[in-house]
């Protein structure tokens, strides 16, 4: 099956903003470092971080996505996004295949983050090891409360029909 007219019209569109449910905070940074066993003192050692070029604790840059994960209860209303509108007939299962993160500015406790997601491209139907599907590429641009771009995430997912 090919992309529909509606699918093609969605390419290049941006979502409404997704807001992080919590401000960036030291406790979530610490819990994350516990699970990753990450001892980097910039993330958890006040003394060290204060004397560093950052002047205080920063979040692990790779936590970008974590801050904007939706809350678990009460169930949030999701803002409009073009990906949800894709028709892509015949495919129904998602798998993430590739992810690029770019980090521009440090994220600090107290920051309020949000992102907008842009639908960059959708491939034609392709055969893969696990089934036939479309590769969907999106860019999430993360902003802080001062409207500075702190980072970007370019993600490719495969939406496919699993092999029988």
């Amino acid at each position: 099956m090919a992309l529909t007219e509606k699918d093609l019209a969605l390419i290049g569109k941006e979502s409404e903003p997704f807001y992080a449910p919590d401000d960036v905070c030291k406790c979530m940074i610490r819990h994350y470092c516990e699970m990753m066993e990450d001892p980097n003192p910039l993330y958890t050692d006040e003394e060290y971080a204060k004397k560093s070029k950052y002047g205080g604790i920063i979040a692990p840059p790779q936590m970008l996505m974590v801050w904007c994960m939706p809350r678990m209860w009460p169930f949030p209303e999701f803002p409009w996004m073009p990906m949800a509108e894709l028709e892509l007939p015949g495919v129904d299962t998602y798998i993430a295949t590739d992810m690029i993160h770019e980090f521009y500015k440090p994220v600090r406790p107290g920051d309020k983050l949000r992102y907008v997601m842009k639908l960059d491209k959708v491939s034609d139907l392709k055969k893969t090891r696990i089934g036939e599907g479309h590769f969907i590429t999106t860019t999430q641009t993360y902003y802080n409360q001062n409207d500075e771009v702190v980072g970007r995430e370019i993600r490719t997912v495969l939406k496919y029909k699993p092999n029988e």
Binding site: Y32, M36, D38, N40, P60, Q62, M63, M99, I100, H101
Partner: peptide, 23 residues
């Protein structure tokens, strides 16, 4: 991604800055 990035900063020490990861 957290575990892979950790190896990078464990190696570089905290002066090393993560700029871009392709995963």
């Amino acid at each position: 991604e957290g575990i892979l990035s950790k190896l990078a900063t464990d190696w570089s020490g905290p002066e090393g800055e993560l700029k871009r990861t392709r995963f």
